[in-house]
Nucleic acid binder design. Structure first.
Lengths: 235, 235
DNA sequence: CAAAACTTACTGACTCGTTTGTAAGTATGT
DNA sequence: ACATACTTACAAACGAGTCAGTAAGTTTTG
């Protein structure tokens, strides 16, 4: 299925970009983000992206070489934008990163398009041979490591501790999972509040190092107030 | 153009479906699950599904009318299968539903295909006009309500309590979010352990009703041991 | 019970729309 | 003059759905 290796036309070797070109490219990227978000990568048509950017699909290809190239550019663009982001918020490094998560989620409510793009693409990326797969694998790994470090710092735990690792995965999972629920029904979930609940509780637990009893015990009535256990667990 | 004298596949007419038909349909559904999972709905071709089921794409259409019809059938089939499921596990109703969650996640590790189908389709469903949108909206809502009830029962809280609601959303979010991370890198996350961590901690918090201090306070040094605060938060 | 009268379960060929990418030509700025 | 930034036109594929036809099963009828 893979055609022969031909040289990519004019992907990135920009010798002399003209004055208004940069702005035009941003406009294409912005349009692409919207369309990839509303339709998914596979179902998105270059023609629609081009139209929103005020040109033909061939014009888009002139700048980004291929649809896949455009996607990669969108992903990179989003990263850069998220840093120099919405409220002049720069790269937060220390334990302040944790409340920053909740802030970001709060801001995201005002940018459903961005949320949708991220949610759709990240899940779509697990499909066979998806062009964004490597990107999201790396992104997840990076986020996990960063969170592990920050959680370690904040709670005085080892960075390599299993609980710290799990907490990092869990926080990312909560944010991503909430987005899908929220996109399907914005009334149904309160993203920042829910994230804060998990975040506060997880950090408290790691800081005090007092694991909660497993729910299985609770269900068996071992800890419950009225200690009437009704049914034995099959396990 | 809907109700003609055409031979509608799932007919309520007088004649019987043939003997091996049911099995054949299941084979198609099984193939469709795989292909929808590995390619996503939009990128999946009926021809590939048909091939895996041992027929042509027109044959598939004969049984399910359209690609969209097939997707809906797959989703329904999956629900039915999940109940009569893997280990003869039937509809768990009471507080036992909570440990059941962890069990399900543990089983899912052995069924990456199913996980991928669910993860890809649920996120894809938020795109404009996706045929599975209503299905997943309903599914999420139903799961949330069920979890609210079970959490209420287990912790002695009101079902309508915000914390209970948030905890329900959070648990679903953790499960779904972990799946994407796990599919991208199975080594990187321990799904059941991570879910258990969040689950235990959330239930404990709701049961004792002692909210953890917000991380923001912790970061500001109010609670931290070494009370060195580095940067004031913008907010 | 068996032939006629259907129905079901397909296949193969085709239509028609959509889509990515290419090629060649035109305008514009430096 | 010469890249750059496009456009129009086209190529080649692909994919969903239609249609007519065929083989086999099922029901009805005499």
């Amino acid at each position: 299925m893979a055609s022969r290796n031909r040289s990519v036309p004019a992907a990135d070797r920009v010798a002399k970009p003209q004055a208004r070109t940069a702005a035009k490219r941003v406009k294409i990227l912005e349009a692409a983000m919207t369309v990839f978000g509303t339709r998914g990568y596979n179902n998105a048509a270059l023609a629609e992206i081009a139209e929103q950017a005020g040109m033909t699909h061939a014009g888009v290809l002139h700048h980004f070489g291929s649809k896949e190239g455009l996607l990669v550019a969108v992903l990179k663009y989003r990263d850069g934008e998220a840093m120099a982001g919405v409220a002049g918020r720069e790269q937060v490094e220390g334990p302040a990163f944790l409340p920053h998560l909740t802030d970001t989620v709060r801001d995201n409510i005002k940018r459903p398009g961005v949320v949708q793009t991220y949610a759709v693409l990240s899940a779509e990326s697990v499909t066979d041979g998806h062009p964004a797969q490597e990107y999201f694998r790396g992104r997840m790994a990076g986020l996990r490591i960063k969170l592990q470090r920050v959680i370690g710092m904040t709670t005085g735990r080892e960075v390599e501790d299993d609980d710290v690792r799990d907490a990092a995965s869990a926080l990312i999972a909560v944010m991503d999972g909430l987005q899908v629920q929220w996109l399907l029904d914005p009334q149904a979930v309160d993203m920042p509040r829910t994230l804060a609940l998990v975040l506060d509780e997880l950090i408290e637990r790691l800081a005090t190092n007092e694991p909660a009893p497993p729910v299985s015990a609770r269900v068996d009535g071992v800890l419950s107030v009225g200690a009437a256990q009704d049914e034995p667990q099959a396990s």
